[in-house]
C-alpha cells in the first residue's frame, strides 16, 4: 500500500539552528534527471554574515575544548552518520544519479574520513609542534593552534557528501569553526549532514552550512574581516583569483581550488593549513 510521503524542508544550518534564508529565497534542487527534489534555501550575504557571527562565538569553546574531547565529538559524527546511511544513500542516488553501490561507497568513505580526522585531534600538535633547543636559559616550545573562523567553498563536483566532509573535517580537527557554502546543485546531503551535526555533540556554531550560490556568497566571505581563513577547494569555477585578492585585505590564509577525484584528499597538511604556529619562551632558572 502506498503511503503519501512527507517531504523535508531543507533549510540553512547556522548557529546550531535551522533557519530559512533571511532573504526568503529558495531555489529548486533537481535530480540528475531534472525532476524536482526539494526547495533549498538560497542563502544571502546576510545569512553568510550571521554564519560568521555564529562561528566566531562558537570558536572559544571549540578551540578551548580538550583535544580528546574534539576527537570524540568528531568520532560521534561518524557514529551518527553510520546510523543514517540509508538516508544519505537515497539522497545521493537521487541527486547524483548513481547506483546504490556507488552511493553507499561514498557514504562509507565519508564516515571513514570523519574517523580518520577524529583520530588526529590529539596527535597533530605532537607531529607538527616542536621543542626548540635555543642557546640560552629558556624553555621554548612551538605548538600549532587553530587559525579561527574558516570559510569554505565546498567541492562542487559529483560526490556532494564526501566533498563536504573532506573540506570541513580537517578544519574542525584543530578547533577552527567553519562557515561552508555547500555544493550548489546537490545541497541536500549538506543539510542532512547539518542534522547529523545538530544531533551529535558538535556545539552549535562550530559548523555553519549555507546553501545557495557560491558565486554570490563567496565574495562576502572572502572580504569579511572576521574570517581568518578561506578554503577555495570548491571555487575552481568561480573567479577565485579575485576571491584570493579580496582575502588579502586582511591577510587571510587561503587554500586554492582543487579539482578531480583527489580534491581535498585526506592529509595532515589540510589540518595544518588552518593552524598558526605559536612559539612560547619561558625563562629557566633554579636560583
Amino acid at each position: 500500500m502506498n503511503r503519501l510521503a512527507i517531504p523535508k524542508t531543507y533549510k540553512l544550518y547556522i548557529g546550531g539552528k535551522f533557519p530559512r534564508s533571511e532573504s526568503g529565497r529558495v531555489y529548486e534542487v533537481l535530480s540528475h534527471k531534472g525532476e524536482f527534489l526539494a526547495n533549498a534555501a538560497k542563502g544571502s550575504r546576510k545569512d553568510a554574515r550571521d554564519a560568521v557571527v555564529a562561528a566566531r562565538s562558537a570558536l572559544g569553546g571549540w578551540a578551548g575544548a580538550t583535544a580528546y574531547n574534539r576527537g570524540q565529538v568528531l568520532y560521534r559524527i561518524a557514529e551518527l552518520l553510520e546510523g543514517r546511511r540509508a538516508q544519505f544513500i537515497d539522497e545521493i542516488m537521487s541527486s547524483e544519479g548513481v547506483n546504490a553501490a556507488v552511493a553507499s561507497a561514498q557514504v562509507d568513505e565519508a564516515i571513514d574520513r570523519w574517523v580518520w580526522y577524529a583520530g588526529w585531534a590529539d596527535k597533530y600538535v605532537q607531529v607538527a609542534g616542536n621543542a626548540n633547543p635555543v642557546s640560552g636559559p629558556f624553555f621554548n616550545l612551538s605548538v600549532p593552534e587553530p587559525t579561527g573562523v574558516v570559510a569554505i567553498i565546498a567541492p562542487q563536483g559529483t560526490e556532494s557528501l564526501l566533498g563536504l566532509v573532506s573540506a570541513i573535517a580537517p578544519a574542525l580537527v584543530a578547533g577552527n569553526t567553519v562557515v561552508v557554502v555547500a555544493n550548489e546543485t546537490a545541497p541536500l546531503s549538506a543539510i542532512s549532514l547539518g542534522e547529523v551535526l545538530a544531533t551529535s555533540d558538535v556545539p552549535g556554531g562550530v559548523v555553519n552550512i549555507v546553501t545557495g550560490s557560491p558565486a554570490e556568497i563567496a565574495p562576502w566571505l572572502a572580504s569579511h574581516a572576521d574570517v581568518n581563513a578561506l578554503d577555495l577547494v570548491g571555487a575552481g569555477d568561480l573567479d577565485w583569483v579575485e576571491l584570493q585578492i579580496s582575502a588579502a585585505d586582511t591577510l587571510k590564509r587561503v587554500l586554492p581550488p582543487e579539482t578531480g577525484t583527489d580534491a581535498a584528499a585526506p592529509a595532515l597538511s589540510r589540518i595544518l593549513a588552518f593552524t598558526e604556529l605559536k612559539t612560547v619562551w619561558h625563562t629557566k632558572a633554579i636560583l
Binding site: P256, P257, E258, G260, D262, S269, L272
Partner: peptide, 10 residues
C-alpha cells in the same frame, strides 16, 4: 589535481 601552489606541508 592541485591547481595552484598548495599550502601543503605534508
Amino acid at each position: 589535481s592541485r591547481s595552484a601552489a598548495a599550502v601543503v606541508q605534508q
